[in-house]
Amino acid sequence: MVTHMKSALSIALPAWLIDELATLPSTLATGEERMALVNELAARNYVEGNGGPFAALVADRQTGEIISVGVNVVLSSGLSGAHAEFMALSLAQAAVGSWDLGADRERELELVVNWRPCVMCYGSTLWSGIRHLVVAGAGPELEQLTGFDEGPMRDDWAEQFEARGISVTQNVGREAALAVFAAYGRSNALVYNARGGDGVVIPES
C-alpha cells in the first residue's frame, strides 16, 4: 500500500498580512486607491521573504468593497503556483462560495494586479469568471528590473481577455509599481526561475 504520497495541501496568506487584514480598508472607491494598496503589499512582501514583489486584490467595482487580497507566497509555501493572482482569486472564490466570480450578474468583480499576469496567471484569470482586470503595466520592464521570467505571453493578451467579456484597464499606478520592481532588483532577494538564468528566455530563431 502506498503511504508516502501526499493527499492534501494547505496554502495561506503570510502571517504578517493575516495580522493586518483587520486594519485594511473594507472599501476603496477608485482603481487608483485599490492599486495603491496592491503596490504597498507588493513592496512589503519580498522584504518579508514570502516570494516576489507581487500582490493582487479582488474588489466589487461598483461598491469598492475589498473581497480578498493576495501576495506571492511561492517561497514560504514551497508551491510554484502560489502567485498573488491565484491567492486573491482563490480567496475571493472561497468568500463568495463559487468557482465563477462572474456568476452573480449583479456584481462586477475586478482583479487588481501590480503588473500584467504571467503566463500561468493569465490562464487563472481567464477561467476565474472575473469581469474586470486592472493592471499597473504590461511591458518588459518587470522582467528587466526583477530578472523574473514571465513566460511566453501572447501579444494580444488584452484582446483575448476582452473577447471573453473581461475588460482590461492598464497603467494604473504604473510608476509606483516600477519603483517596487526596481527596489527588488537592487535587493538580495532570490529570483526563483525554476531553470535558473537571468529572467527573460528568448527562443532561438
Rank of each mutant, 00 (worst) to 15 (best):
M1A: 14
K6D: 12
K6A: 13
K6C: 10
S7Q: 14
A8P: 00
I11A: 10
L13T: 04
L13F: 09
P14G: 03
I18V: 15
A22P: 06
S26M: 11
T27S: 13
A29M: 07
E33K: 13
M35K: 03
A36M: 03
N39E: 00
L41E: 05
A42H: 09
A43C: 09
L57P: 01
L57A: 09
V58F: 01
I66G: 09
V69F: 03
V71W: 01
L79I: 14
G81S: 06
A84F: 01
E85I: 05
S90Y: 06
S90K: 13
L91S: 11
Q93D: 01
A94C: 11
A95W: 00
A95D: 01
D100E: 02
D100A: 10
L101S: 02
G102H: 03
D104F: 04
R105Q: 15
E106S: 15
E108I: 10
E110D: 03
N114R: 04
P117S: 02
V119E: 09
V119I: 14
Y122H: 12
Y122R: 08
S124E: 14
W127V: 14
S128I: 01
I130M: 00
G139S: 11
P140C: 05
P140F: 09
L145C: 07
G147S: 07
F148N: 08
F148H: 12
D149W: 10
D156P: 05
Q160N: 12
Q160D: 13
F161K: 05
G173K: 01
E175D: 15
L178Q: 12
A182V: 06
Y184L: 06
N193Q: 12
P203R: 03
P203C: 06
